[in-house]
């Protein structure tokens, strides 16, 4: 990997910006170059919120990423907006709790994560973003699970119970990713 770009998109309150920041922190922890680029427009008040994270082994150039390798989409408007932008050969991670369609693109992988359902079941509806993050890391290996676990512990989960839920979410996401991609590889 020399550079990896991923866009997280959804609506306000879904932890979009946080998911991106956790990934960026993990990148720094692994001595990589990182940039976290938010959307800051009128749309941050009510509409689609998104951020792009760039993780690189070399100095990061453009913070304008028109075509990321991966899009993690948390709601339908984000699915519609970002799925077509993913680079050919890339990846789309779809929050299937809120998005009832799948992509008809055949040149990208697609992982469906019922993030809200997993989170509710685990007892913390707010942790849906971490399930998607787990799926992303499981599918790409851009950073290691050990690193992201450390970051989650330091940055957000000071209570043991909260931490355990988040670790559980990461794991659920990862399992789904491996299952989806593994199946595909076999088939």
């Amino acid at each position: 990997m020399s550079q990896y770009e991923v866009t997280f998109a959804g609506f306000g309150g879904q932890g979009i910006m946080t998911a991106g920041q956790l990934l960026a922190y993990a990148g720094i922890e692994e001595d990589k170059q990182v940039a976290w680029i938010p959307s800051y427009g009128p749309e941050m008040r009510g509409g689609t919120a998104y951020c792009t994270v760039v993780i690189s082994d070399i100095r990061i150039g453009s913070p304008i990423i028109s075509n990321p390798q991966c899009a993690c989409v948390f709601n339908r408007p984000s699915f519609d907006k970002f799925t077509p932008l993913v680079k050919s050969g890339g990846l789309v991670i779809v929050n299937s709790s809120l998005i009832d369609v799948t992509t008809d693109r055949t040149d990208v992988d697609e992982i469906l994560v019922p993030a809200n359902e997993i989170a509710m079941k685990a007892g913390n509806a707010k942790a849906a973003n971490v399930a998607v993050l787990g799926a992303f890391i499981g599918a790409t290996g851009v950073v290691s699970f050990d690193t992201i676990k450390r970051i989650i512990k330091v940055k957000m989960a000071h209570k043991k119970a909260v931490l355990e839920i988040n670790y559980h979410m990461l794991d659920e996401g990862r399992k789904l990713a491996l299952k989806t991609l593994g199946k595909k590889a076999k088939g």
């Binding site: 990182v34 976290w36 800051y40």
Partner: peptide
């Protein structure tokens, strides 16, 4: 962009 983006 310089004001809003995060970097190390």
């Amino acid at each position: 962009m310089i004001g809003q983006m995060m970097e190390a």
